[in-house]
Design a protein around this nucleic acid. Structure first.
Lengths: 115, 115
DNA sequence: TGATCTTCCTAGATTATCTAGGGAAGCCAG
DNA sequence: CTGGCTTCCCTAGATAATCTAGGAAGATCA
């Protein structure tokens, strides 16, 4: 797996990515990592030290719930699924992302004449 | 002026926006704030408490230099301009932004079948 | 005179993320 | 059956970015 250097742009977007990954079906923590990797076209590999605190955070905020189960490889694994609140949160964060990335793109494209 | 709530997506993008603003011509700190506001179509108003530390940081990294001058309103003002290093940094950060925002958009668009 | 605006700055808190581990259990090659 | 690899969980501490919440000082204007 390709490893990525710490990533500033990722800041503030991790929750969104996790919510999105979990929204496609329940996952254990490590699976979130793998699914994001996969969904990004193998470009993005988030750190476990970012992932687990984020899962903890999201669970405590009520956006996801967890349940112990068994993984595809017979190992104990904690499965996370999106709550209704998490679904709302996902759409809020998505909108937020679209708004902000739009603004940033606009700033990057403005030409001197236009200001 | 519209004020914005703290903004997670902005995390890790502030330097890029500042470099971009300064790249369109030398500016004093407060002017950076105003120019970003303007370039964003009045959508984005960064906090002074984020701005000044960032300017300090960028200056210490050699991406911008400062010089005391006088503002349009006869006030003492510190003018910042991009250095050669800053210009390189701007294009690196722009590329980084484009890469990362592309990946994030891709993750937001993937449908269950595709994974 | 007092209020408001512009322009600079700092201190402290908060929070996210990263680095850098550790633990345990299954799988597989030799 | 032993050693190493992979999977899966977790925590502690450092670092760094940003925000909140001010202060200072000069200009302008009512």
């Amino acid at each position: 797996m390709k490893t990525e250097k710490p990533n500033d742009v990722l800041q503030g977007t991790l929750d969104l990515l996790i919510l999105r990954a979990v929204s496609l079906g329940p996952l254990h923590g490590y699976g979130v990592l793998l699914r994001i990797h996969q969904m990004s076209g193998e470009e993005l590999l988030i750190q476990q030290g970012s992932l687990y605190p984020a899962l903890y955070r999201l669970e405590h905020q009520g956006a996801i719930t967890s349940e112990w189960g068994e993984s595809e490889n017979n190992r104990k694994a904690k499965y996370y699924r999106l709550t209704r609140l998490g679904r709302e949160r996902l759409s809020e964060e998505t909108e937020r992302w679209e708004r902000m990335s739009g603004i940033i793109n606009q700033i990057l494209r403005v030409t001197p004449k236009e200001i």
